[in-house]
Design a binder for these strands. Structure first.
Length: 949
RNA sequence: GCCGCGGUGGCGGAAUUGGUAUACGCGCUAGUCUUAGGAACUAGUUCCUUAACGGGAUUGGGAGUUCGAGUCUCCCCCGCGGCACCA
């Protein structure tokens, strides 16, 4: 056989595959189906890049493995061709997007055909073709029928450069996903899909899918479900009211003001004349800001008092109403109750504007050895103080060491009947330390509820604790009474050691508060909350919600971060929205039989205008329409649809490509959907994947399909970085194009190498040097078929390694651990190449195992070896687990945890035999002689651990 | 700030339930072949120490549990990804 020439071999087999149509799936076959989907590429003008290759090749190896295991694989391919990037590319080149898109697609297809993937090119879709976007429009109509497509006037994201509206998902850190321009908010009438109706199911059904945990979490966070209550608030001396949304109704007694978003419609009505000027100024200022400025965290909180007050329904107290841009109009009710004591943002705001801070939740600390309350014990309440005493000259603090009890604390004491806690603090300090003169005293944080079971008194104790920081004036010290000091001694502890010194949790909490004051945002027990005092936050949430509901001034409410999907685009290159506006009948949908509403090819200028209307508005022939209802003159909608609408159902269309009557052929759809495995980038989790799930659910509810989760199993490929370890980009000059690698080394080498580099789900830097290792490996494998091939019984050793390899390679591919599968194949090939003659059966199996990674080469070797038809018609070999076991194993002997000897033993050897062998070993003797073996642990076939002393 | 993931030789990376850390590949070193080689092949290669046998150290740092920890627990440091005033 001649030397391995990948270019020649690959050209040959690609031709054969094309001619025999071996990868055109027979969708009607009886074999079990396996829908192996990759995310279809977006041909925007650049080459398909490393990321495409990596993803597709990984998916293909997996698919080929499944095929060899008896599945009928369907791996379709298509092009996501509408949308901003394709259009922007065309604009930059000054050509019509239809033309540039066609060129890009033909280029991409050429590339794809060299990759050695089992793509079924016979069922290609191109989303910008009328025979496809007819179904995009059809989909719109289905949603419209269900009331899931609607128009509303609302603030939307507007990209000034792309001159179009964007969905929330397409705004990344306040920048346009495509051109990195700062997005501004505009009030516009727009088409939306009501994805929020499905928010709960989109969360709940994540339990049904086998997806990476991180992606499930990302979607969950993106949807952002939060449970709380909506509470009505009456405006003082007015009939007006509004509601606030809060997840922490338990903190309601700590409310000291409320905040409305500047856009809140009530603002104008309630602003007093005196405040009008300032409020107006603030509103204008807020409106001018871009999202980035508004969301900037460095920015100080700002706000303006409206002059009006609202009434807290729980205690009837009046609280001032402010407006501030830290409250978002688009979330909840656009109004919040502010509880500075228990919310960081409110705290910051209150500090800045000198608004009162009232504690209503006290943290609960189980003190004194964490002893929980005991049943039947008497429970008493004993308020106390903790006193942090600071030295008059040094940065040191008095700490007490209660030797008998093992506590270390600050000065501590009970508040006597009728005594103020501040007085207690001073009194206790004097009694216990003798120091007399207070320079300053300051309360630290809020009340902390300390609970413990006092064993010596046999009772449960609740001890609300106030903490004070006392700074001493000087060192004047009186003699202390013994009764106060008999259990502890005191010492001065430098500041940096205090934290470590303390053992009582409640004192540690108090100490932390001296450093930096902040809101306590955790759960605890209610204080200052009238009849709700003493409840836990959890209990209070329930009781308070019930209280509100009974009073009919509130209800429990679930809110989502997710917004409805804004789908209209004021751009040319997209599927027209199939709607006409009739002066008589109003908004009328185009009947299904009239689809597609074709995108006019002839247009003077397809560039966006930025007027809020798309370029289609300038095409008279397009705009002018007849009303499908009354036959009168009407006007077409001129917005086109977001590309993500096109890509939300393409996988449903593939099996029915060719059918012009139905989007989905019922039988084929029933058989082939949902998708069994979906491989693609993680960057689509909160866009495409979320939209596709929503669309599937809506069609399911319309009884058009019988599944409601489109992608049962999904995995992401990692990112291939440039050789410098940075993300590939033209500006950095570190882009490696897959075609160049394929031309030089061949697709088989490329596939195997890129999958060998690291974990598929991790990706990593492209190292051009390493590829020779794979080349050597494939050449070495190729060379085996040149050796003397005999048809005999393979050796025991060969059988063992063969069976091991079958097991590991199969299991690894199944789990997408391609790198370790390849490494095992290397071990196997290295073993075989050390042998003079090769066993025919072994080489047959090797070819099959190589086939997923190096399909062209495997075909060639298979043809030479067996003379049979394509290797992809073969069956993945079975292994015999009995043949994997080694007869002898090396057992490590550990002495006190260190490996001192290795023994070769029979795998069946028992502990005693191994121990005897070990004792006989010189090396072991050295460590054991004259000592006592205290413990022996034997892990069968692995190691013997001896503990000696 | 919050959520998620990760940190292992010179490099990419292996390591079922805790059980011989560094598989496989690159690179490097020596050798073979060669007019030559940035080709191929063979052998070696975690680090320190030793002529060698051997000994010691080692999975970001520190503590802990265990006969035994890359793997489990706690604290800290660093990197990556996502979210980011969501009430």
């Amino acid at each position: 056989m001649e030397k391995y020439n990948p270019q020649k071999v690959e050209a040959k087999w690609q031709e054969v595959w094309e001619k025999t149509k071996i990868y055109q799936t027979d969708l009607a076959s009886d074999k079990p189906k396996f829908y192996n989907l990759i995310m279809f590429p977006y041909p925007s003008g650049d080459y398909l890049h490393m990321g495409h290759a990596y993803s597709d090749m990984g998916a293909d190896v997996y698919g080929r493995y499944k095929a060899l295991n008896g599945f009928n694989i369907f791996m379709p391919i298509g092009y996501d061709a509408f949308g901003l990037p394709a259009e922007n590319f065309a604009i930059s080149k000054g050509i019509h997007p239809k033309k540039s898109t066609a060129e890009n697609i033909s280029h991409a297809e050429k590339q794809l055909k060299t990759w050695g993937c089992q793509f079924d090119f016979s069922r290609e879709v191109t989303t910008s073709e009328p025979n496809y976007y007819k179904w995009t429009q059809w989909l719109f109509l289905q949603l419209y029928k269900q009331g899931l497509a609607y128009q509303k006037e609302s603030p939307v994201n507007w990209c000034p450069k792309c001159m179009t509206v964007l969905a929330n998902e397409q705004v990344i850190n306040g920048l346009c996903e495509r051109c990195d321009t700062e997005v501004v908010q505009k009030n516009m009438k727009q088409w939306f899909f009501k994805i929020t109706d499905y928010a709960d199911r989109l969360i709940k059904d994540l339990d049904k899918v086998d997806w990476p945990e991180s992606s499930v979490t990302k979607q969950r966070n993106w949807i952002g479900r939060s449970e709380g209550v909506e509470m009505d608030m009456q405006i003082a001396d007015s009939k007006e009211k509004f509601s606030v949304f809060t997840t922490r109704i338990d903190t309601v007694y700590g409310m000291t003001y409320v905040v409305l978003a500047p856009e809140h419609p009530l603002v104008d009505k309630i602003t007093t004349d005196k405040q009008k000027k300032e409020v107006e100024k603030y509103k204008i200022q807020a409106q001018k800001q871009t999202e980035i400025e508004r969301q900037s965290l460095e920015k100080d909180k700002t706000g303006v008092f409206t002059g009006s007050y609202a009434i807290n329904p729980f205690n009837g107290e009046k609280v001032p109403i402010w407006i501030a841009d830290y409250v978002l109009f688009g979330y909840g009710t656009g109004a919040v109750m502010a509880v500075p004591a228990h919310d960081e943002r409110d705290y910051e705001f209150a500090k800045k504007y000198n608004l009162p801070i009232v504690q209503s939740i006290a943290p609960v600390v189980w003190g004194l050895g964490n002893a929980k309350f005991r049943e039947g014990g008497k429970t008493i309440v004993r308020p106390q103080v903790a006193v942090i005493v600071k030295h008059w000259a040094k940065d040191e603090y008095i700490c007490l060491d209660w030797e008998k009890f093992g506590w270390k604390s600050f000065v501590i004491g009970g508040i006597d009947e009728g005594e103020k806690s501040e007085e207690t603090a001073v009194r206790e300090m004097r009694e216990e330390t003798g120091y007399q003169n207070v320079k300053s005293i300051r309360k630290i944080g809020g009340t902390i509820v300390n609970k413990y079971y006092a064993a010596h008194k046999g009772r449960n104790t609740i001890a609300p604790q106030d903490a004070y920081l006392i700074e001493l004036e000087d060192g004047e010290q009186a003699k202390t009474e013994k009764e106060h000091t008999k259990f502890h001694k005191f010492e001065w502890v430098p500041k940096k050691n205090v934290q470590k010194y303390l053992t009582l949790e409640n004192h540690i909490v108090a100490w932390e508060e001296t450093e930096e004051e902040h809101a306590f945002t955790g759960y605890g027990e209610l204080v200052n909350s009238k009849e709700f005092d003493g409840l836990t936050s959890e209990e209070a949430k329930k009781k308070m919600a019930e209280w509100l509901e009974k009073k009919k001034s509130g209800k429990t409410q679930v809110n989502y971060r997710l917004h409805d999907w804004s789908i209209g685009r004021q751009r040319y290159w997209g599927a027209p929205i199939p709607i006409v506006y009739c002066p008589k009948c109003g908004v009328v949908s185009v009947p299904e039989k009239d689809l597609p509403v074709e995108l006019p090819e002839k247009i003077k200028d397809f560039r966006p205008k930025g007027t809020g209307k798309g370029p289609l508005a300038s095409v008279k022939e397009f705009v002018e329409a007849t009303c499908p209802k009354c036959g009168g003159k009407a006007e077409r909608e001129t917005d086109t649809m977001d590309t993500f609408v096109c890509s939300s159902f393409y996988y449903m269309r593939y099996p029915s490509v060719g059918n012009d009557k139905e989007m989905m052929e019922p039988n084929v759809t029933k058989k082939w959907l949902p998708v069994d495995m979906y491989v693609g980038g993680a960057e689509h989790v909160t866009m495409h994947l979320l939209y596709a799930r929503f669309i599937a659910k809506s069609l399911h509810d319309a009884r058009l399909i019988n599944f409601d989760e489109p992608f049962l199993k999904m995995r992401h490929q990692g990112m291939i970085l440039g050789p410098d370890g940075k993300k590939m980009s033209k500006s950095k000059g570190n882009v490696v194009i897959p075609d160049a690698v394929i031309r030089e080394h061949g697709a088989d080498t490329f596939r195997t190498y890129i999958l060998f580099m690291g974990r598929f789900e991790d990706g990593g830097p492209w190292d051009p040097k390493g590829i020779v290792g794979i080349k050597r490996f494939l050449e070495k494998a190729w060379g085996l078929y040149d050796k003397e091939i005999v048809d005999n019984e393979p050796s025991v050793e060969e059988t063992r390694i063969l069976n091991k390899t079958i097991k590991k390679v199969g299991e690894d591919i199944d789990a997408l651990r391609f790198n370790t599968a390849i490494s095992q194949l290397m071990v196997f090939v290295n073993f075989l190449s050390s042998q003079k003659t090769q066993n025919k059966k072994t080489l047959e199996i090797l070819s099959i195992m190589l086939a997923p990674f190096a399909p062209h080469m495997a075909e060639e070797l298979w043809e030479k070896l067996s003379g049979k038809d394509s290797i992809s018609l073969e069956v993945w070999p079975k292994y015999d687990k009995n043949l994997i076991k080694d007869e002898t194993v090396t057992v490590a002997v550990q002495i006190n945890g260190k490996v001192r000897e290795q023994l070769i033993i029979n795998i069946e050897a028992e502990e005693n035999d191994v121990l005897e062998l070990a004792k006989a070993s010189e090396k072991v003797k050295k460590y054991v002689e004259g000592k006592e073996i205290k413990k022996v642990i034997y892990v069968k076939g692995k190691l013997l651990s001896l503990v000696v002393s």
